[in-house]
Design a protein around this nucleic acid. Structure first.
Lengths: 156, 156
DNA sequence: GAATCACTACTCGGATAGGGTGTGTCCGAGTATACATGG
DNA sequence: CCATGTATACTCGGACACACCCTATCCGAGTAGTGATTC
């Protein structure tokens, strides 16, 4: 899986802790975790295209959340970075070669069905968790994190 | 996801339909679906290393199932081809840079936890389905498949 | 005639190149600020 | 003193190289069968 997913999720939480009233630049978000800023910028652009973040250019510019954390699911972020395609794609090899059934198969490949059910379970689990759930869990495990973020990323 | 997973699953079903009393070469299995035989051979080797298939060299050699289909789960095949690592790997960026919490984090990263739950759901679903379940479904959708396999891959 | 041995043909197994996607970087487009200038 | 225009600094956005892993292939290791050879 694309490494940018992890970066994007952390950045969304950091943006929430900073607060929606101020935008944070990609450079600051990257420095916070020692990430390459230009590449993180690329990932954040994907979140903007997906409607998860908003961005403004120029001084005082940067990124901010487009909507509250409880209206962003983990799957929204994964789809924004990884794309909407399933990991397993059926190439329909059963229809190729001498083993092909005569005529056109009217039902889905049983193998594709089995893999599809698993991917559906994966997506359901991701869609069931909002970033706010993740934030609550993160604050429970590291109560000082929000303060650190506000202190280091805030404009103060 | 690796394309070899699809090939491996189809090949396992084909081996089951041929029957365990005779081995089938990689070349025959590949020709059945017009796949590159040398590369399919590589995937089948992975299944052998995982203990799903057994192989013998030489004339009358080839591959056969190491155990009945109902004792092989879809996840066994996926792990054999893709490897045991999770798709999402937490690089612990929260512990890097100025945003790092003082001391060592005693709890798992909340983000890694969220992704891990989804991957667990995926693996559970894959592990809950045996290749025999897939075979039954495949035969229901294409009743003539077993005969075609036996006719084209059998030594008769 | 039967047993043994070497040879051959055939298949798996691992080592060896090529391509596509993720990874990382750079420069141009766009904007708020600051300052100089003129009224 | 105030308004306006301009220059500037700063940031996002998309276009451009690099690297790694999946894809594909080739040759050597290993084995069953076959035929010749010898007792």
């Amino acid at each position: 899986m694309n490494e940018g997913v992890e970066w994007a999720l952390h950045s969304c939480l950091n943006l929430a802790w900073v607060g929606e009233e101020q935008a944070v630049t990609a450079a600051r978000l990257a420095a916070y975790h020692e990430l390459p800023s230009a590449y993180l910028n690329k990932q954040l652009q994907a979140l903007v295209r997906a409607g998860i973040l908003t961005s403004v250019c120029g001084p005082k510019g940067g990124f901010r959340l487009a909507r509250p954390l409880d209206r962003i699911t983990v799957m929204d972020v994964v789809v924004a970075i990884e794309g909407p395609d399933d990991a397993f794609r059926c190439t329909e090899i059963r229809g190729k070669g001498p083993g092909a059934a005569p005529g056109k198969p009217d039902a889905e490949c049983a193998i594709a069905g089995a893999m599809g059910r698993a991917e559906l379970a994966w997506r359901r689990e991701l869609a069931a968790q909002t970033l706010d759930d993740v934030r609550i869990q993160a604050e429970r495990q590291a109560p000082t994190a929000p303060d650190r973020v506000r202190r280091l990323l805030g404009t103060g």
